[in-house]
Amino acid sequence: MSAKILLGAENIRQLAWGAVNGCEAASLLEGLHYQGRALDLNYGQFLLQMPISPDSNPYHGFGGSPFTNRPGKFEAIFTRPLMWWGNRYGNLQELSGADPQWLYDFVAKGEPVLTFVTVRFEQPEWDSYPFGQVPANNHAVLLDGIDGDQVHVSDPIDGQYWLPKTKFEPIYLSRKMAIAITK
């Protein structure tokens, strides 16, 4: 893949909405809007529809509140409940476990990919919870561009930018969690 591809998905700034923990919903809505879906919903409305886990387990729904940090809670939502929710608005495809090249292939087809990474692509800082080990610096971004040795992301905290694949891939591969927002 030698041609530069930049889908140009919008960037939703989660902190502007007071959502200190709303990266998954922001990245998902960016991808849905890119595909022409859920256009009648802004980020605030979308967040209010996010499924909340009654047992604070991100494998069951959002584990806490997107608006506050609560001690002992892991405020995130993982792929399965995110797909259950997001499929109400568009077409999603689970890519967890996929090699990075698969993610790039989806972007090349015009399908952005929500990827679970870490804040600022720093090394994961692992914490233990009853549901398993997760990075305390958990984050999600929308992968929406590729160009040679670089990828482009729409990051709900830090905006839109290019970064080297050598920085993106190890952080993605630490968990291999991703969802394509398809046509």
Score class of each variant (00 low, 15 high):
Ala25Lys: 09
Met50His: 02
Gly61Pro: 01
Phe67Thr: 02
Arg88Phe: 05
Pro71Glu: 12
Phe78Glu: 13
Phe74Arg: 04
Gln35Cys: 06
Ile77Gln: 10
Leu39Gln: 12
Glu24Gly: 07
Leu39Tyr: 01
Arg70Asp: 03
Asn42Ser: 12
His60Asn: 15
Ile77Val: 14
Asn57Leu: 08
Gly44Ala: 14
Asn42His: 03
Gly72Gln: 05
Ile52His: 02
Gly90Glu: 13
Ala76Thr: 14
Ala38Ile: 01
Phe46Glu: 03
Glu75Tyr: 01
Leu47Met: 15
Ala16Glu: 15
Asn11Met: 05
Gly97Met: 04
Pro66Gly: 01
Arg13Ser: 14
Pro71His: 05
His60Val: 00
Gly63Ile: 04
Glu24Leu: 10
Pro58Tyr: 01
Leu32Tyr: 11
Gly97Gln: 10
Cys23Gly: 02
Lys73Thr: 01
Leu32Arg: 12
Glu94Leu: 11
Gln49Thr: 08
Leu47Gly: 05
Ile12Arg: 05
Thr68Ser: 08
Gly90Asn: 13
Phe74Asp: 03
Ala26Lys: 02
Asn91Ile: 10
Asn21Thr: 03
Gln49Leu: 15
Gly31Met: 05
Ala26Asn: 08
Asn11Ile: 09
Gln35Arg: 15
Leu28Ile: 13
Tyr43Trp: 02
Asn11Trp: 12
Arg37Thr: 09
Gly63Thr: 05
Ile77His: 09
Ile77Leu: 02
Phe62Met: 00
Asn57Arg: 06
Leu41Ser: 07
Arg37Trp: 01
Leu92Trp: 12
Gly90Gln: 10
Gly63Phe: 06
Phe74Thr: 01
Lys73Ala: 03
Pro71Phe: 09
Gln35Asp: 04
Phe62Leu: 00
Ser56Ile: 03
Leu48Thr: 08
Arg70Cys: 01
Leu15Thr: 08
Arg37Val: 05
Gln93Tyr: 08
Glu10Lys: 14
Gln45Gly: 15
